[in-house]
Design a binder for these strands. Structure first.
Lengths: 162, 162
DNA sequence: ACTTAAATGTTGACTTTTCCACCTTTCGAA
DNA sequence: TTCGAAAGGTGGAAAAGTCAACATTTAAGT
């Protein structure tokens, strides 16, 4: 096994790198599929999907489930409302948030696109076993948590000259 | 710690979804680290890193190794040249491409930043075993390949004109 | 109750990334 | 050889994403 002290992280070099490339490929794929079906972009689709699937319907939980920056979320939600995919209601329990309600248009879009993307997901993981998928889910959790740390002890705080 | 930090990962959402979130987190982390060390952005750093590590030095192989869109690659390479990180030489074997040579400035930057990012990677995978890492690398390969397919046979051809 | 701090969402500026049309060079086939 | 297709690269425009400041609302501590 490659020792971590050995060379500079042997083959596995650049894991974030590979994840970025995978993400780019997945994004492009999703974009082609989604845009073939309507006028939603990726972020908008994610919001619709989270609301359509989940129990959550208030803004903050939806936003966190979709993993979208709050700035972009605000804009995309506004776009969804303007395009008639959602209706926003005041949320009694917390006046800062809103309750997101999907319109028939959104439900229809979800009914058409959901199965296609489910098929795509099946295709993506077709050759992976259940055990491997468990490992992957675990790894994603672990790395996402580890990605929170940004203040690494820096070995050499070199001179700022030049 | 407040209950707010539920990170939305692990809710049983779809895989491309979680990968996107992981990527976002990793990107933000890398950005903080890299920008603390100089004036390179992420894409520029990747180019420098690929050239510094790899045997490849001509544009197309570097571009593909870095996984950067050719348009952005062109711009970032121009920026690197302007900032004095690289020198571009004509490539005899193919006049469309260039040979990328790193300057001392780039080698210095790589020497300072490389170890920090290696440390970061060690931190990211610290709790994962070798076997789990193998699974992850395999999964990335498999899914990246599967992400090439965009023409799924679509169960619902209900779209009219095309 | 009062004051202070934190969370949420909105907005606008800004950076980064992607898309597309076009040009040059290379390669292969007639 | 010549033609045409494909690959590489460039530049402009648009989209996507990020960041920081701000107002409102909520929560917390006194």
């Amino acid at each position: 096994m490659t020792n971590s002290d050995d060379s500079a992280i042997g083959l596995g070099l650049l894991l974030p790198f590979q994840i970025a490339q995978l993400h780019t490929a997945l994004n492009a794929q999703a974009k082609v599929i989604i845009s073939a079906y309507g006028d939603l972009n990726l972020a908008q689709w994610r919001i619709v999907r989270v609301v359509a699937l989940g129990v959550e319907s208030t803004t903050t939980p939806v936003r966190k489930a979709a993993g979208i920056d709050k700035s972009q979320f605000s804009k995309m939600l506004g776009a969804l409302e303007q395009k008639g995919y959602v209706v926003l209601h005041p949320y009694k329990a917390d006046k800062r948030q809103h309750v997101i309600e999907l319109t028939d248009k959104a439900h229809l879009a979800h009914a058409r696109l959901g199965p296609v993307l489910d098929e795509r997901q099946r295709h993506l993981v077709a050759t992976l076993s259940e055990e491997e998928l468990s490992v992957i889910y675990k790894a994603i959790r672990v790395m996402a948590a580890a990605a929170q740390k940004t203040d690494f002890d820096i070995p050499i705080p070199a001179m700022e000259e030049e």
